[in-house]
Write a protein that binds this DNA or RNA. Structure first.
Lengths: 248, 248
DNA sequence: GATGAGTTTC
DNA sequence: GAAACTCATC
């Protein structure tokens, strides 16, 4: 028996909004420590990795490790049926082919339950390796979203150049070119508005804005995003989901 | 070398929002006194005239008269990349084929620069002649926008009839007709809410609402609009852009 | 609270 | 391409 209740159900809704355009289906691996997902997009260009700690749920019960293979579009459709202030309980029996979602309004007056068929997905079980990066940049997630959206007006890809002075985002295309320089902030009133850079090595890397714009769909999950860069290694964007976990 | 910094960059963004549906491309003529644009819409029905005084910029430097021919759609795209509270600096070297736009956030933490290719546009260099009008009406720009939008529901053109009592806007069409009478206001609390009429001669003229609705895209630039009318002469709408200049 | 622009969905 | 929804602004 697996059962996990998330008081703030809107978080799960936002997680699905963040990944539904990228990941067609995914295995949700449930263990006593929590829930995690690793899935590639359909073009195998990017990897989505979600980890949610058991401590973010109450109650959380996982008698035995269980893998819930789900169609992302279907899950997203079902979660659209939850109100933002509903709690969401996910429940699955041992060796079942369905999973249940229970949405409860704060005053308990409305209880919805949806049952979805599970899939058998063979996954390669990739993960994002823990490693040293040349540059780790923290910035407001809305700022990063804005940069990607703006540079999409100019070109298809963005060159990210990080030095200790700041990060420069550059694009070029038919109408000309655009460069956005973000300086490391000295001291800002709001911590979440801060731009901070940990630099081992200056880096200059180029990425497709198409994918970055997919990734920034996670912006509502967190006011901040952490971007890790390293030569010949995929870029990592890390959105912290409160105390619950994170989405990379 | 031409360089002009506009602290309130949102003004330039609004100017482009106002003209981008009307003017496909335009020459921006820069001289020591400021920047001006005269351009006809693609159907040669209307003329857009912008004049921005050098005194509205700080700094403003124009060593030699220079003409910057720009695609309006491209310029608009680039200006969409500026935040409303950014300052905008326009810079062009002598005999160059590109122009640079620098957007700086108020705290200087983000600096964007965009470079756009210039065009060689042969323009007829028309202007709006200075002349006496039969009627000069000042009214809230939002009110005029609303009138044009509402009457578009009724018909394709509006008859504007101005006497010393007031202005009457009339349209008719399949579903019936509509008339909006605006009386000259005696005294209003807010000066910008005032309707005032300077009348030499009562006039009655008809205009295509399609174009008036293009013109009212300039509404965000100014709370007031001045409409000048004269028999056999094009209508003029004048939107004052603060101390910077105006758009007609 | 209302309006408009942008984004997304059908 | 039209309509609905969301977000931001007034």
């Amino acid at each position: 028996m697996f059962e996990a209740k998330l008081t703030q159900g809107s978080l799960l809704k936002k997680i699905l909004d963040a990944i539904k355009d990228l990941v067609p289906s995914a295995n949700w691996e449930c263990s006593s420590t929590g829930v995690s997902v690793q899935a590639m997009d359909s073009s195998h260009v990017s990897l989505v990795s979600i980890s949610l700690s058991s401590e973010g749920f109450d109650p959380f019960r996982c008698d035995r490790n269980i893998i819930l293979g789900m169609e992302t579009a279907s899950l997203s459709k079902i979660l659209k049926c939850a109100s933002n202030d509903d709690s969401i309980t996910v429940r699955a029996e041992e060796s079942t082919d369905t999973v249940s979602f229970i949405f409860e309004s704060p005053n308990q007056e409305r209880v919805c339950d949806y049952n979805m068929k599970l899939l058998d997905i063979d996954s390669e079980h990739l993960g994002i390796p823990e490693q040293e990066y040349d540059a780790v940049i923290q910035m407001p997630s809305s700022e990063f979203q804005r940069i990607c959206r703006d540079l999409t007006q100019i070109g298809d890809s963005v060159k990210i150049n990080c030095t200790k002075e700041g990060v420069k985002f550059s694009a070029h295309g038919d109408l000309g070119d655009g460069n956005i320089l973000l300086k490391q902030s000295a001291s800002v009133d709001k911590e979440e508005d801060q731009v901070s850079i940990e630099l081992n090595e200056p880096v200059e890397l180029t990425f497709a804005l198409r994918y970055l714009n997919f990734f920034t769909k996670a912006t509502p999950l967190s006011a901040k995003v952490t971007m890790s860069l390293k030569e010949d290694v995929p870029l990592v964007l890390d959105y912290r989901i409160g105390e619950l976990g994170n989405l990379k």
